[in-house]
Amino acid sequence: MRLAPKTIRPYSNVSRSTWKSIMREWQLYLLLFVPMAYFIIFKYVPMLGVVVAFKDYNIFKGVLDSPWIGFEAFREIFQMDAFHNAIRNTFLLNILDLIIGFPIPIILALLLNELRVKWFKRGAQTILYLPHFISWVIVGGMATQLLATNSGGVNNFLNAIGLEAIPFLSEPLHWVITYLGLGIWREAGWGTILYLAALTGINKELYEAAEVDGASRLRRMWHITLPGIKPTIVILLIINIGHMVTIGFDRPYILSNPLVTDVSEVISTYVYKVGIQSARYTIATAIGLFQSIVGLIFLLSADFISRKVNDQGIW
């Protein structure tokens, strides 16, 4: 039996049907236009400014008229001891945040998932994620009032009971511990919400079958709950590794002071001091471009390794 030849739709028909689909759902496309415009204007258009890293930028001449200098800015930043110190501190703080802070939301989500008293579970969730909405400016002020060596409430209490004051914010090791502790306190509850949302997708019949087989709560968490949220854990881990060379400005800047600059000076604060305070825009742009490239390499590498080991990744 001879089959009829396949008809090919003309390009004009395809375009007409696409246009009809857009007109039929124009409200959705209109809603999509706002976030697209935001990303184009504030994320993609500013990328053109990376050429400043390759120019002797003069604020009066502008980007186009400033002379080209090639890779001179990159050669200069790699010879700066302060830049090497900022990179070291950025990696150190991010690695410690990843090792210590990343598992905390997972553990909290597992514990909250086992609670049977609903009102207590909801109350615990609220208490845990509320600190996320407190700005680092307020957190820094609270930390100064409570943890300052000479006037902080905690050290005043320790002195009152005959103990020595602890230099939470004035000694490098204690500052790092305080930095990590405040970060976990502020963000752990918010990360817990993501894992609790992932837990809702686990089939409840698996728990019932495991309970019938005599599996303990710990066994059910290990063999059912953790594998159920494994994709979420992998994706968030890859994203965190991708941010290994990137660090927020507000947290280290607000908690820092001249006594702990050796451990608190990170890339974001260094760029602020070089680019804004010293008006060396070429150097600041070169550091930012280097930071973005290294972050992209970390992200792609983490995704590649995850796909090879777990067959899971971002894309």
Rank of each mutant, 00 (worst) to 15 (best):
Q125E: 15
S151R: 02
Q125H: 09
V34R: 09
G152T: 06
L108A: 04
V34F: 15
I247C: 01
A215W: 04
Y29R: 13
G191Q: 04
N156E: 00
E265G: 04
N203W: 01
I224A: 09
V50G: 07
E76I: 01
W26V: 09
L173W: 14
V309K: 07
R186H: 12
L259P: 00
L206S: 03
W185N: 02
W185T: 00
N159Y: 03
V137Y: 08
I297R: 11
G152N: 03
R75S: 14
M47G: 08
W26T: 02
V245C: 09
L255W: 02
I184G: 00
Q312L: 10
L48Q: 14
Y44D: 05
T232F: 02
A124S: 15
L30I: 05
H174G: 00
P252G: 03
D262M: 11
G313I: 03
S292L: 14
L115Q: 14
I235Q: 03
P131D: 08
S66A: 08
A197P: 10
F91S: 11
K20F: 07
L48P: 03
T225D: 13
Q312E: 09
R186K: 15
V176G: 03
V34N: 06
L111F: 12
W185P: 02
A302H: 07
A73Q: 13
W175M: 02
V266Y: 06
M23C: 13
R16E: 14
A165E: 04
I161N: 10
W119M: 15
L147A: 04
L299W: 02
G275T: 08
P231V: 01
V14H: 11
I166L: 10
A148P: 02
I8W: 13
G288M: 07
L111Q: 06
E171W: 08
R75E: 12
G295D: 12
Y253R: 14
I177W: 00
L93Q: 07
Y272M: 14
I177H: 00
H132Q: 12
Y207R: 09
L169P: 01
M1G: 12
L237A: 12
S170T: 15
A188H: 00
S15Y: 11
I41S: 10
M36F: 14
D56G: 08
L30W: 11
T126M: 14
F120E: 04
P131I: 06
H132G: 04
N85H: 08
T149L: 11
L112K: 02
G141F: 05
T232P: 01
E164K: 14
G101C: 06
G140P: 11
I247D: 00
F290H: 00
I297K: 11
L147F: 07
T178S: 06
L299S: 05
I239A: 07
S170W: 06
Q277S: 12
K273G: 02
L48Y: 14
L199F: 07
T149E: 01
S15P: 00
T200S: 14
A165R: 08
L92W: 00
L108N: 06
I276E: 12
S135R: 05
A53W: 10
L147E: 03
I69E: 12
I134P: 09
F91W: 15
